[in-house]
Structures are given as C-alpha cells and as structure tokens.
Amino acid sequence: PDSPLARWTKSLHSLLGDQDGAYLFRTFLEREKCVDTLDFWFACNGFRQMDLKDTKTLRVAKAIYKRYVENHSIVSKQLKPATKTYIRDGIKKQQIDSVMFDQAQTEIQRVMEGNAYQMFLTSEVYLEYL
C-alpha cells in the first residue's frame, strides 16, 4: 500500500520527493521538451535553503532569473507578468530573500500538476517502469 508507485500517484509532491520518481518524471519531461519547468522547481527549493549572507546566494538568484525568468523560455511563458516583474525588481535592487521565487514556483507547480503530471501518469515512460 505504501509502495513508491502508490505514492507517486498521490501527488506531484510525493513524486518529486522520491528519487526514482523524480528521475523518471525528468526523463518524461526531457522527451516532452519541457524539463526546464522541473529544473526551475528544484532550483527554487535549493535557493530557499541557501544562506542569504553568502555572496553566492545573490549569484544563484541572478542565474535563476537569467536562465528561466527574463527570457522567453517555457518557464517564463507560464509565469504571470506581475510575478516576473517582482523577481526582476528584487534582482535589480539586489534585494534578495529566501521566498522571492515562491510565487513563481507555485505558478509553475500548478501548471505541472494540471498538465505534465497527469500526462506522466499515463505515459510510456511510467508504464514501462510499472
């Protein structure tokens, strides 16, 4: 009853909290050409755990912004304009805080839950694993 597979179908969160599940979902997204959404989701989690006093943290915030938010990437297209503006302002003013990507992460997560996650559960990658 508590097999990994049972957990994966419970929620996107349980899938991503499992090593095999996250790996398999990543494989699926690579095939669908939208693996950036998952990398962004993990980057937001990683960023939240960083030490704000560490100079590295500002560089990571900038890197996340440049790679996923400021361009026309798949992540950027799924974010609300206000969310992008909020992040851009924080980066510009070098005012970073641990939760600055939280809203963006939530938006991306909702899209994944309603779309990629559902598709994954009926995908070849998943069924082959079963």
Partner: peptide, 20 residues
C-alpha cells in the same frame, strides 16, 4: 570562481531527493 551555470546546477542538485 564557479561559473553561473555551475552554481545553478549545484543549487538544483542540492534540492533533488537523495534517498527513496
């Protein structure tokens, strides 16, 4: 000094699940 890509990769990896 690490490149931006390395820092980003490190950040992503740090958040990936390590155990089942």
């Amino acid at each position: 000094i690490d490149s931006e890509d390395d820092l980003l990769q490190e950040c992503i990896s740090s958040a990936m699940p390590k155990t089942k």
